[in-house]
Amino acid sequence: MAKTILAVDDSASIRQMVTFTLKGAGYEVIEAVDGQDALDKANIHKVNLVLTDINMPRIDGLKLLELLRKLTHYKTVPILMLTTESSDEIKAKGRAAGATGWLVKPFDPKRLLEVIGKVIG
């Protein structure tokens, strides 16, 4: 049974690349264009993993993390931050907001699958 991943990024090319990579590895993917969209979709579909960018319009990744963690289903679902911000400050903020881990952009498809495999493999 395929696991479902919610991929959140305001960049269509990154979204497409992530979706393509994940679908190729047998995951189901739902895309969201920003935090608000992600929140709406996360409420409808109970996904198995959330992969989110940090810097996005409307609701950013950190706020999304916080809000998701308040939902019963998402208390235990792995949420990975996918971001160019690799500084410790962002990591600390992500951790405080409840992120499971982080993945630094730019990344290649292989690394993405490796991380995801470790979490929901």
């Binding site: 963690r69 208390k75 235990t76 679902v77 792995p78 949420i79 990975l80 990591k91 992500g94 951790r95 409840g98 992120a99 499971t100 881990g101 982080w102 993945l103 630094v104 990344f107 690394r111 490796e114 991380v115 470790k118 979490v119």
Partner: peptide, 23 residues
Amino acid sequence: MPPAPGYGFFPGAPAAPRDIDDL
């Protein structure tokens, strides 16, 4: 697990790999 470059997990965070069993 072996260290994973370019990414990482927060210890004790929800669904971090080592918590999977508990989950």
